[in-house]
Nucleic acid binder design. Structure first.
Lengths: 137, 137
DNA sequence: CCTAAATGCTCTAGTCACTATAGGTTCAAG
DNA sequence: CTTGAACCTATAGTGACTAGAGCATTTAGG
């Protein structure tokens, strides 16, 4: 049986976050020691690792909740899991594309300025006047 | 003089967001009509456009607050503005790189699965077992 | 001039995924 | 038996808004 601190070290999820996940119902309430401290068995660790990994990949807790639910029913078709993962992949790609547009604009704005005074600073002027921009954002 | 709704349409910032910015002190409290409604003059519009544009580029309200402060002092050196913009550019690039790693992993996970049942779904297995992954994340 | 619709007002609470703090209790080592 | 690390609960804070309730004002049409 693991204490919450040991579980935290084993999974890379911080102690307050574990308690937070418990309150949200993502993980089951564990058994307790005589002195009311949490004691975890192996399955809790696997479930928490699953959550951690999915969070690392950027999935929302809502999406993770659904995936956990699916993983408890091995006989169900996995199409729904694909929908969730695919939607997240699409969202990630869209976010990358958007950030790349911002990156280009930021690079353009910062490069076109001699380090003088604010009065003729291109960074400030470009922010004040959208029409100095290249693309949309 | 613009009403708050007209200002919102002119700048693309929503009405509650304008009031929110006012509460944060990012924009000045405007004059009021006899019936206590906000009435804005031209400078408020320019300031709000500046904020909007900087937000679109992903800058934090704290960074924007500093940039606004700088823009009020045209004689100051603009080095500090460059530091802020440069830090944001670096953060944006780091975020893009991280998202690209996630994208690669997600694409790998989702592509390697025939649409069968959850029991042998690669999406679920890959989330449960980090060692099936390619890189770090 | 009157009315009705649109817009405005303040205030509070909710979102997401935690993180921090306060003030107390339990556990394991020495 | 004592000490100090780790644990407990509960509440509030983060960033940048967004939603809703319950009113007041403004403006255009009749």
């Amino acid at each position: 049986m693991l204490t919450i601190g040991e579980l935290a070290r084993a999974t890379g999820v911080k102690v307050p976050t574990i308690r937070y996940y418990e309150k949200l119902g993502l993980i089951a309430e564990p058994t307790r020691s005589e002195g009311n401290q949490r004691r975890y068995a192996g399955p809790a660790r696997q479930r928490l690792s699953f959550i951690r990994h999915a969070r690392d990949l950027g999935l929302s807790l809502d999406a993770i909740r659904e995936l956990l639910h699916l993983s408890e029913n091995p006989d169900m078709p996995c199409a729904e899991a694909h929908v969730i993962a695919g939607a997240h992949l699409a969202a990630t790609r869209a976010r990358i594309a958007q950030l790349q547009r911002l990156e280009a604009e930021l690079a353009r704005i910062t490069s076109a300025c001699d380090t003088g005074t604010i009065g003729d600073c291109h960074v400030i002027h470009a922010l004040a006047d959208h029409s100095l921009c290249d693309g949309e954002h």
